[in-house]
Design a protein around this nucleic acid. Structure first.
Length: 632
RNA sequence: GACUUGGUAGCUCAGCUGGAUAGAGCAUCAGCCUUCUAAGCUGAGGGUCAUUGGUUCGAAUCCAAUCCAGGUCACCA
């Protein structure tokens, strides 16, 4: 149990002994004592003052006295300032903690709890290469999975590959038209990038063709439109003329967007793509062959990227296999009266009672929609792995969709539906605006990785500390540092929040960064190579210096940090913890020598301190998928 | 319009289950390498915690309203 929790339970026990009052741990607060006051942990007594109607001095005196008397091993002294009771923890407590845990590589990790959780992350589309936003997703998913493992869970990392649909057809059509049979081999372009290039090519064609349509619409030429599209266009145009008089610019812009969308959907190229999707669904051999060929290129490209960034999966689902999954569930839902059928044959669920809308689950033509597949897959995951909970790492733009999914699963009475959790993360935006694949304003994942590794190489060469490394060792080190900087950068902020990336400035290698933590680790290792710990005997209790104690106090908090990161699904807790520990150790390091300590006992104690710090830094960084080098 | 998330230093972010003088990093400025790796350390300047009102011993934190920004509200995925 952590010291904070130990203190809490002692305080509750003391309060009920002293005042015969059923207090719980929620009736008072406990904080770390501010550095300007004497003591280590502080009980905030204002709430007690109120309920006991006694002055803080009297309560503090009684409580502090009781604690020191009954637990002298844990509390050495106390003082009261205003409503704050500051408790001092004896140095023996801290040196014992160090003694017992310094060489424990699994420190902070929990015993297996027998529960199984699936983390689904990454989930790429096979029509374009990965970008910075995908990297955030990948690092988050991977890290959360590791944090769950450290918390005692069995974890299955999964990925659903979005390998079918109209967006894939777009790349295929452009390739057919323009590529002249170009392949990754013939062009030397990485497969995912090659396919992505043709996706962009298609989008450009689409843009050009729809612009022509819009120009004609503006000249009141509607000859390209017919049927329902024409009707809708007419309506929009009439609405527009009315609005022009009112001058509501927001609504006018919205109408223009709708017209634009209508024009896009009325282009020949979109018609081709739609036809290709139908052909795909019918299994037309030449379409299937092309689809397999191009997807194969993308997978080859993704494999390279995943390998570089250290993403891996225990189970990969392909949407081409799962997109029909939810069908049988639709019938079950109808039988259970969870779903209902409209006159046109389409099937819906009514979520208005839950504050949401009616949601379509099957089209009138009997084909399933996105959410249907998701329900099917959710059920399959459970049946296949008997998981206790399921975590989806998906961007916050899908908050509504995921809410609906959770609700439907619950209403269908799916097992563990309450344990479906959407780990919703914010977009990565650029200082120059948003990233949009269609417009080519994306930071490409491969480019960024290359850049990070190149920067780490440059900096390492400038410093010239590892000139004796072999070529292979150097390459390894550059990757370790470059990727460390990048992963740390993306994981150090709260996942929920939108974050801003400045493509003009490269990611830093100083301060609150991965390399800073890696460097602290390498420096400790350097000492330990020269000063192996010899003595296995317990160290005589010595007085701890302030800087020594600062480090141990932080080390004690590592298990709490993991616990918090797990319950909040938030690796940034670990990033901040590990940075704090490194920083605190560095302050100690410059002030006090380990090799030339004042006494043998001091030297042993500081060596233990160094060993344990290195262990925890390594362990914490591993939870984020970041390696720590022995030298750098 | 409805729902939802956010607004803290020049920039990027912590702190938000109410507690002592609001913290980091970057950037700026001033120092520290004959002693364990200077990707480091020490210090300085820099804040109307979006605004207004409320709750109370105490509010960046809770509540309400307003302003600003993002997201969602498809028989797309």
């Amino acid at each position: 149990m952590s010291i904070v929790n130990t203190i809490k339970s002692h305080v509750t026990a003391a309060l009920s002994a002293l005042y015969n009052h059923p207090y719980t741990e929620k009736d008072f607060q406990i904080n770390q004592t501010k550095p300007e006051f004497e003591g280590d942990y502080t009980i905030v007594m204002f709430s007690l003052v109120k309920s006991l109607k006694t002055s803080p001095e009297v309560i503090g005196d009684a409580l502090g006295g009781y604690l020191v008397q009954h637990h002298p091993d844990l509390f050495s002294d106390f003082n009261i300032i205003k409503g704050f009771l500051n408790l001092s923890i004896p140095d023996t407590f801290w040196s014992n903690l160090l003694q017992e845990n310094y060489s424990n590589a699994a420190y902070g990790h929990k015993e297996k709890n027998g529960k199984k959780v699936m983390v689904e992350y990454s989930s790429p589309n096979t029509n374009k290469p990965l970008h910075l936003g995908h990297l955030r997703n990948n690092f988050l998913g991977w890290s959360v999975a590791e944090i769950y493992k450290a918390s005692g869970y069995d974890v299955i990392k999964s990925c659903i590959v979005n390998d079918r649909g109209i967006h894939i057809c777009k790349s295929m059509i452009a390739w057919q038209k323009y590529a002249n049979g170009a392949t990754p081999q013939s062009t030397g372009i990485k497969g995912d990038h090659l396919v992505g290039d043709y996706y962009v090519r298609f989008e450009n064609d689409l843009k050009a063709e729809s612009q022509i349509l819009i120009n004609k619409i503006n000249l009141a030429d509607l000859t390209d439109f017919s049927g329902p599209a024409l009707e809708k266009l007419d309506k929009l145009l009439i609405a527009l003329t009315k609005l022009d008089e009112i001058k509501d610019e927001e609504k006018i812009a919205k109408l223009h967007d709708e017209i634009k969308e209508l024009a896009r959907n009325n282009t020949k190229v979109i018609a081709e793509a739609k036809q290709m999707l139908l052909d795909w669904e019918e299994g037309k051999p030449e379409v299937i062959d092309l689809w397999k060929k191009m997807n194969g290129w993308v997978y080859e490209g993704f494999d390279i990227t995943y390998k570089r960034i250290g993403s891996d999966f225990d189970k990969i689902y392909y949407e081409s296999n799962t997109y029909l999954l939810g069908k049988s569930i639709v019938q079950q839902g109808l039988d259970k009266n969870v779903f209902f059928k409209k006159e046109d044959g389409s099937i819906w669920i009514d979520l208005t009672a839950d504050g949401l809308d009616e949601k379509l689950v099957q089209r009138k033509d009997g084909t399933s929609v996105y959410i249907t597949q998701d329900i099917g897959l959710a059920l399959q995951k459970y049946e296949e792995f008997k998981i206790d909970s399921s975590i989806y790492v998906i961007g916050n733009e899908q908050n509504y969709h995921m809410k609906v999914l959770q609700l439907i699963c619950k209403k269908l009475g799916m097992p563990n539906a309450d344990n479906i959790l959407h780990l919703s993360y914010g977009m990565v935006e650029l200082t120059t605006g948003k990233m949009k694949s269609r417009e080519g304003t994306v930071v490409d994942a491969d480019d960024l990785v290359d850049e990070m590794i190149a920067t780490s190489q440059r900096l390492t060469e400038e410093l010239g500390k590892v000139k004796d490394f072999t070529e292979a060792e150097l390459r390894d080190l550059y990757e370790t540092i470059g990727l460390g900087a990048m992963k740390f950068y993306l994981l150090r902020v709260d996942p929920k929040k939108t974050m801003v990336f400045n493509p003009e400035e490269s990611i830093d290698f100083h301060g609150f960064t991965g390399p800073f933590v890696q460097y602290t680790h390498a420096r400790i290792k350097s000492i330990l190579r020269k000063e192996p710990i010899i003595s296995q005997n317990p160290i005589d209790a010595t007085d701890l210096l302030k800087l020594e104690k600062d480090v141990v106090v932080l080390l004690e908090q590592y298990p709490d940090a993991i616990e918090q990161a797990c319950s909040e699904h938030n690796p940034s807790v670990i990033a901040m913890y590990v940075f704090n520990l490194a920083k605190t150790f560095n302050s100690f390091y410059v002030e006090h020598s380990i090799a030339n300590a004042e006494s043998d006992e001091k030297k042993q104690l500081r060596l233990q301190l160094a060993v344990m710090t290195a262990n925890v830094l390594k362990s914490g960084m591993e939870l984020m998928g970041i390696k720590v080098p022995e030298r750098m």
